[in-house]
Amino acid sequence: MTTLDMSTTPLREVNVTLQEAAKSQSNSAFEITNPRGSHAVAVGLDGPVSVTIKGSTGYYCAGMNKSATIRVEGSTGPGVAENMMSGEVVIEGDASQYAGATGHGGLLNIKGNASSRCGISMKGIDIVVHGNIGHMSAFMAQKGNLVVLGDAGDALGDSLYEARLFVRGSVKSLGADCIEKEMRPEHLEILKDLLAKAGADAKPEEFKRYGSARKLYNFNIDHADEY
C-alpha cells in the first residue's frame, strides 16, 4: 500500500503515479489522504489498481475510469466516474450532480444520496444508489442500469432511451416518455445481481421498473408537446 498525501503531493503527481501503476497492470493499492475536495483525483486510470481516497473530493473524481477500483471514504463533487468504461467506483458518502454521467460500463456504487442528473446520458454503466437521487436523473439515458434504493426526484428518466431504471422508493415525477414497466423475471435477475455486487440490503421484488415508452423515438406530431 502506497500513501499519497495531497497536502504535500500535487494533483499532477498523484495522477501520474496512479496512471502509471494502472498501465503497468500492477494490481497495486494506493491510499490518498487529504483530498480536501480536490478536482480530477484518480482520473483516466487504465488498468487494475485499487485506490482508496480518505476524504471528500471535488469534480470528476475517477473520471473515465477503466478497470481500476476506486473507493471514496467521503463525498464526491459533480461528475464522479463520468464516462467510466469499466471497473468499480464506490462512494461511502453522497455524490453531487451528474454522477456517472455518460458512463459506458463498470459499477458506480453510491452508499449515500446522489443529487440531480444522476446517470445523465449513461451509455451502459451500472449505477446503484443506496439513498435518494435528485431531479432529472437518467436524462437521455441510453443504456445500462440505474438502481435506487431510496426515492427519485422530479422528471426521472426524461427522454429516456434503453437504460433500465429500478426504484424502490417513491418517484416524485416521471419525465417525458418515461413510464413504469412490468418487472419480468430477467429484470429481477439483473437487479438481484446488481444488489449483490453493490452489497445492498434490499430485495429485487421491492423495486419498480421504469423505462422508455419509445414514443419519442421517431417524430410524431401528436407528441409534439413532449419535445
Binding site: 499532477r12 480530477a40 482520473v43 470528476y60
Partner: peptide, 14 residues
Amino acid sequence: DLEIKILEIREITG
C-alpha cells in the same frame, strides 16, 4: 465549471 472539466481532460491526457 468548464475550467474544471478542462483540468480533468488535461489530467487524463497528461
